[in-house]
């Protein structure tokens, strides 16, 4: 600006006076980005709250909550197999062959039962392909449904309530105490011991020799 003949660009002089501001910006900028990515990229943002639209408006709040039907009535493979299977249409028809037989909401259930084609339920809780989660190993040893699935008995439409990320799994494998309960209450919703859950859990884990492992091959096999 001082030398009008020069064509080269020169920073304006006033920039010198804001050098402390620029230094602050250079410091705060990366911190800002790290915090933003940490917050936005957390499984709490990307995973929790997934609530797909299901082909049949089945309400867990009614069946499991209000009627109090045990989770295992429909998910009857949970204590035996790795997978708590989605029930075949036959199980819906146990009751709905005689109740709400004309309901339009159940049209797809009746269709499926008549044709033998499965109802295309949308999977909510989906782990990455190369991690194995065995339901029976957890449920029969004292981890309740609620610990990973939340209060399903209050959900009209099921959504993912927990992060189901590796760090989240490891949190519990390292300190399972607060998530333990006697296996007979595994499907109970809102169960809590009469004492401090950590105290109860520590005793329960010791009595039952529960030592969850953290090796890679515990889950990746």
């Amino acid at each position: 600006m001082s030398d009008k003949k020069s064509k080269s660009f020169q920073f304006p002089k006033w920039l010198n006076t804001i050098r402390p501001h620029l230094a602050l910006g250079a410091l705060v900028g990366p911190v800002y980005l790290i915090v933003l990515i940490y917050y936005a990229w957390s499984p709490q943002t990307t995973m929790v709250g997934y609530q797909p639209v299901q082909p049949v408006p089945y309400s867990h709040a009614l069946h499991a909550g209000e009627l109090g039907i045990d989770c295992q009535y429909c998910h009857y493979t949970v204590t035996e197999g790795a997978h708590a299977s989605i029930p075949p249409t036959q199980v819906c028809m146990n009751c709905h062959a005689s109740i709400w037989t004309e309901s339009p909401k159940l049209l797809k259930v009746r269709e499926s039962f008549a044709t033998g084609m499965p109802i295309p339920w949308v999977r909510v809780h989906d782990l990455p392909a190369f991690v194995q989660f065995d339901h029976s190993a957890h449920v029969t040893r004292g981890v309740g449904c609620e610990s990973c699935h939340g209060r399903v008995d209050k959900m009209e439409v099921v959504f993912q309530d927990k992060k189901l990320s590796m760090a989240w799994c490891l949190e519990c494998h390292r300190a399972p105490e607060v998530n333990l309960r006697p296996p007979e209450f595994a499907t109970a919703m809102g169960w809590a011991p009469n004492e401090d859950p950590a105290v109860f859990g520590a005793r329960f884990a010791a009595e039952n020799n529960l030592n969850p492992r953290e090796d890679c091959s515990t889950c990746h096999y």
Partner: peptide, 29 residues
């Protein structure tokens, strides 16, 4: 992001890094 965290979505979740999330083997059901 705060809004995203507080609301539920019927849309499939974003997969920012596809590190072996999808396998080729069929799983149960």
């Amino acid at each position: 992001v705060a809004k995203l965290r507080a609301t539920k979505s019927p849309d499939p979740r974003p997969q920012i890094i596809w590190d072996m999330d999808q396998g080729y083997a069929y799983q149960s059901q």
